[in-house]
Design a binder for these strands. Structure first.
Lengths: 333, 333
DNA sequence: AAGGTTCATCGATGCGCTTCGACGCAACGC
DNA sequence: GCGTTGCGTCGAAGCGCATCGATGAACCTT
């Protein structure tokens, strides 16, 4: 283990000078700095993270709390995580992975033991028990996903109600007069998870505004679940021709299931999906979709955290504007 | 921030006594220990992670290196990660998330800065540049997935060649005489990733042993990719009736694509999938599958790491026996 | 009763780093 | 000529903890 003292010796300076070269917090002459930097390279020196955290009061670690529930769409979660890690590394932060399962205690533990400088938390539900704790923390926290009342915390997410409205408008513009929302699994609604609620609200409001018929249903993440959801929709509103699917797991089955019910896509049924763009066009019928910009959201979350770590106190809520890409699954009726 | 000194004061003992109560490395009388523990609870004390790492030489953090490639099947990766985090927490370890993208430098950095006590690395390819570094590390490392020569490192994985053989036997037993392996994307083979190679080898060897015709093809993770793969197979071996699909991404499309080519599953084509069990039965046709026990593998990896951290020096390679579950996608010909 | 044991606890030290105050030195002003 | 200023560097302190040697008390032993 090579320490700052070894570097100092090799460069014939004091340890504090090495520290200042590294942090830039005091001016060091170019010659000295060069000597130090060369010694660092020669010895392959890396500051000890623990010592640094202890002395500096900063760990350069971000804690990321991810949901690892079965009913959560995993690829999307992973895309967030990947974006967070990648962006965090650019700012020289590492990422500690925490799971929902640890819950309140996990956040408390990590915060109190100063394992991380800040938190990024995904998948907040309404009245999430972690919200008050996150607010009370010394460390800043940023939410991915918007709970009902994010008071006091910064948050970033896709503007889901606008997304739903955009889908409704698109379908209504194509002449569809009876729409259905095939949404998240029932458990997600029961937890009153932000994105599901907001999509539903946006859907219903836009449908009313456009004066089109609309029904919504939950959908379990399996072929059979989708079958039941579609059956439910057609039972309640047989004339449905426009479908908004906000459930990545069943996307691959949508065309087949609608076919079972005698509907060809897009001849008899138009489908708009809410999903990551790269998920939209790898199917038999490429889906007209509203992008779920997981990468952008993850990056922005990190950037918000960094701003807070640099001292910004103002909380911000950023809702990204939805973008609809027309592909093969929607058609004028 | 409440420190060990505050606890000591509250319990009217010295700081070192508090430390010994926590670590159990020296006997402390029950009365004193109780007083200390109550103070800890009252003050909600959590040892500072940085200080602990500095003084104790242990971080209680595991570094997990995950592949976040587009051609990697993400849900499976996530399942590994979840299992690792969950199991690690049971042993009071946290998990630092690193990505493949950081590569050699990332491993070096984390090791040299003593950010983690050990490494778990997924998705090693043959001659992975990280292998020599992992071997040279002070910290132990465990591989998830088997590179060609894991020399000196512990590793755990599904026994993929046995899995392929099991699938071949199952199909051959059902009377199929012409088999096809629809495997990973071409890039995965080009990287000579362990699991892909081993599945292929096991497939070919078992087919020869059973004296059945066999072709193998790579498959890109999209509907069109699968279409091309199937076309390729039927071009080279038109009589193919038994299919082994080792590519989670295209699983949802298999039935539809085979249908396009005039094959009903399971009437005209039997399909065995290699995928997590819960992925097998959420499709239109429930797949006969060989389970990909991501959860088990992740747990075992952590347990191996823990053993090394406790001083075990013997490296071990564990290959889990494949288990085939018969469902609806295979039938006697 | 003096010495030996064992047990519970304490104080001091050091882990590797950041940061603060201080110092030496050259350039400058008057 | 001397005081002043500012730059570049150093030494010391301290972050919170684990660990080691030491100490004191209680209990035996002979």
């Amino acid at each position: 283990m090579v320490s700052i003292g070894d570097v100092a010796k090799a460069a014939q300076v004091s340890a504090s000078t090495v520290s200042y070269v590294l942090s830039g917090k005091r001016p060091i002459s170019k010659e000295t700095a060069d000597r130090v930097l060369r010694a660092i390279r020669d010895l392959n020196y890396q500051p000890n993270a623990g010592a640094r955290a202890l002395a500096g009061g900063r760990t350069n670690v971000l804690a990321l709390v991810v949901p690892l529930r079965a009913d959560q769409n995993v690829p999307v979660v992973m895309e967030f995580a990947a974006a967070v890690v990648t962006r965090a590394r650019l700012a020289d932060y590492d990422v500690l992975l925490l799971t929902q399962a640890e819950g309140v205690a996990g956040v408390r533990r990590v915060a109190a033991s100063a394992l991380a400088d800040a938190f990024i938390v995904m998948d907040l539900q309404a009245d999430d028990p972690r919200l008050p704790i996150l607010r009370a923390l010394d460390q800043p926290a940023v939410l991915i996903g918007l709970p009902e009342r994010p008071v006091g915390l910064s948050a970033v997410d896709l503007h889901f109600s606008a997304a739903a409205a955009l889908a409704v408008d698109h379908l209504a513009d194509l002449g569809h007069r009876s729409l259905a929302l095939v949404g998240a699994p029932a458990a997600v609604y029961e937890r009153r998870t932000g994105y599901a609620q907001r999509t539903l609200a946006g859907f219903e409001k836009a449908a009313a505004r456009r004066d089109v018929a609309a029904v919504a249903t939950a959908c379990e993440p399996s072929f059979d679940g989708l079958r039941r959801a579609v059956a439910d929709v057609l039972d309640r509103q047989p004339g449905t021709t426009g479908w908004l699917v906000h459930n990545e797991s069943v996307l691959p089955s949508v065309v087949a299931v609608l076919q079972e019910f005698g509907r060809e896509v897009p001849a008899d049924a138009s489908v708009v999906a809410v999903c990551p763009d790269d998920m939209a066009d790898t199917h038999a019928v490429a889906f007209t979709n509203i992008g779920l910009p997981a990468g952008d959201v993850g990056e922005i979350a990190v950037e918000m955290v960094l701003r807070h770590l640099e001292g910004a106190t103002a909380v911000e809520t950023r809702l990204l504007s939805p973008v609809l890409t027309e592909r093969e699954s929607t058609r004028r009726i």
